[in-house]
Design a protein around this nucleic acid. Structure first.
Length: 210
DNA sequence: CGGAAGATCCACT
DNA sequence: GTGGATCTTCCGA
């Protein structure tokens, strides 16, 4: 029941780093029947695919799990980590390199009570508790592997036009939880809205443009 | 075909 | 700050 316009696929068919940065401030909407759940995206990470040891697609060849990473940008890549948590990503660029953007945190906007219930909590809750983390966001938004490969410019799960953050509002740092990735672990591919309390965790931001 | 490791979260010390 | 939960995926043999 949200009157918003989904971003066109052209938005996603650009370099992952650019998409990750510009996804901040946009709105992720999950329409379930006639009910909407929505969060404003406040934290993302780019995964470059081929050659990026932190990426599931770093070898450059699709596998059973990663086949949707090698589809043209604009579809969802949802997978399970640690046997417990779903992770929601947006596939970017063309079909060549398997790049994607992980959505790490959102600011609850629509359907907040339902999201709180989905997380097994009772309101009111503090900032970042409901969707401040990739696993928490998926749980709150009812995003599961069922939506793997789903288009994001139409249908049940969409990313809609919100706002575009000015450069001075964006913090940049190293990606979280990828220590195994060698040199790629230090690449500055994590983006967040500067100072937003819903961001998943404090981190030594590498460039805080003020 | 076995096993190691994982883009996390939560409870507990 | 540390450890356990939980299970799929993928590599190497």
């Amino acid at each position: 029941m949200t009157k918003r316009r989904p971003l066109p696929v052209a938005f996603f068919r650009r370099p992952a780093e650019r998409v990750a940065r510009e996804l901040l401030g946009q709105v992720l909407v999950h329409r379930i029947g006639d009910v909407d759940l929505a969060v404003r995206i406040v934290e993302t990470e780019a995964y470059l695919g081929t050659g990026d040891r932190a990426s599931h697609a770093w070898r450059g060849e699709p596998t059973a799990r990663t086949s949707v990473l090698f589809e043209p940008g604009g579809v969802a890549y949802v997978y399970l980590v640690y046997g417990l948590h779903d992770m929601f990503n947006v596939v970017t660029e063309g079909a060549e390199n398997g790049s994607a953007v992980l959505v790490r945190a959102g600011e609850p906007r629509i359907g907040v009570e339902r999201m709180i219930a989905n997380r097994g909590l009772e309101g009111p809750v503090g900032a970042g508790v409901v969707a401040g983390g990739p696993g928490k966001l998926c749980r709150a938004m009812e995003i599961t592997r069922r939506l793997n490969g789903s288009p994001l410019d139409r249908g049940e799960l969409t990313i809609c036009r919100g706002e575009t953050l000015p450069p001075h509002s964006v913090a940049v740092g190293a990606r979280v939880g990828v220590d195994y990735a060698g040199a790629a672990a230090d690449w500055p591919l994590r983006f967040a809205e500067k100072g937003n309390p819903h961001v998943s965790r404090p981190h030594p931001w590498r460039h805080e443009i003020s």
